[in-house]
Design a protein around this nucleic acid. Structure first.
Lengths: 204, 204
DNA sequence: ATTACTATAGTGCGAGTAA
DNA sequence: TTTACTCGCACTATAGTAA
């Protein structure tokens, strides 16, 4: 109704009719959203004016981003790289509960213990920039045991037909190595060894 | 999870974890959506595969279209026309309950009894094509008293700062007359008479 | 007219469990 | 392992009503 841009006059009974709920429920919903900090209100004697807060808009935009991903992202990118052994650091990060919970809800799978590192061919390095400038699926950072774990950007992907995901820290130096996680142990499932050249299909 | 494109394997407990509800509730939700015809399922002995139906996708797209309208459409179109008296037919259509209910939920107001007809200047006729090729806010058709009332496309608009909406039948001959509805009686509220030239701001 | 409290009716969730 | 039933409990919605 324009509540994103400015205060809008809506009585609770009006809102109830629009939402097909009672005046009482509409009133309560408004109070709940005020409580959560998603709405602000300018409550007059005979009318109220309501506006969505920045937090509220952010919350709506998050949902909008999901819809967008579902309906509009048909673009896929083929990136070629060779299997390498990393420092084993990826594994430590990826298995943090703070990330795991989000992986399950946003990527729809829990990653196998380790990560697969792919050293990207120089010809395809430019495609990494495309990934970095795409929104992807954002996994929030968190604090744990006094350390802080940063925000991570993910992309659904496939390697030789097997579902997986590329994960890249949102704030970090550029690298020519991509980290891939999957529900399966990719090295054994599709028989990969260091030095193998594979093509990764990334869904933007 | 890809259920728009094809069948996807998801157990009810998996779905429960992803949605932060129990296995039982997830199972129930799936059954409800099947009942409503929004999902199809391929139920095997040890696994089920789920896909969203055409109706389900349509339903999601409707919500997506709303989000799109909220966040992306800042385009507005100024169309100039002169106030004319129509056949009074618009009034009959606009006051049909089948339309009224939808106006309240989609345009957020109930129209005043009549409609205001604007004969569009020939210089602005091309802008009507823009409207016709824009999605707008779709109001479904319905049957009533043995007659059928067609689908109608609406656009939020303003005349001299007063909120209103343009309504145009989705399937009809081209016309150089636009019908405008508003919560207020526009002729008296902003003092309009036949022959007056007004500028209508239409929000795409 | 408003908004919103209280008490109650109604709906949804999930533990326990069967198939 | 699955899916999904029953049933008690908790949460949500609203009728009645006050301010």
């Amino acid at each position: 109704m324009g509540g994103i841009h400015d205060f809008v006059s809506v009585s609770s009974s009006e809102l109830g009719r629009i939402l097909s709920i009672s005046q009482q429920s509409a009133s309560k919903r408004i109070l709940e959203l005020l409580e959560l900090g998603l709405l602000t209100r300018d409550l007059g004697a005979r009318s109220q004016r309501i506006k969505i807060t920045r937090t509220g808009i952010d919350s709506l935009m998050k949902e909008y981003a999901d819809f967008k991903r579902i309906f509009e992202l048909k673009d896929q990118l083929a990136i070629r790289g060779t299997v390498t052994t990393g420092l084993g650091e990826g594994q430590y990060y990826v298995q943090q509960k703070g990330y795991l919970d989000q992986f399950e809800k946003k990527l729809w799978f829990l990653p196998y213990e380790g990560t697969l590192n792919l050293r990207i061919e120089s010809a395809d390095l430019v495609k990494l920039n495309i990934l970095e400038s795409s929104e992807g699926i954002l996994v929030d950072g968190f604090e744990s045991e006094g350390r802080s774990f940063g925000e991570v950007r993910c992309f659904s992907a496939k390697i030789r037909g097997v579902e997986c995901a590329v994960i890249m820290p949102v704030r970090s130096h550029h690298s020519n190595v991509l980290e891939v996680i999957s529900k399966h142990h990719l090295r054994s499932t599709i028989g990969l060894e260091d030095g193998d050249l594979v093509e990764l299909i990334v869904y933007l």
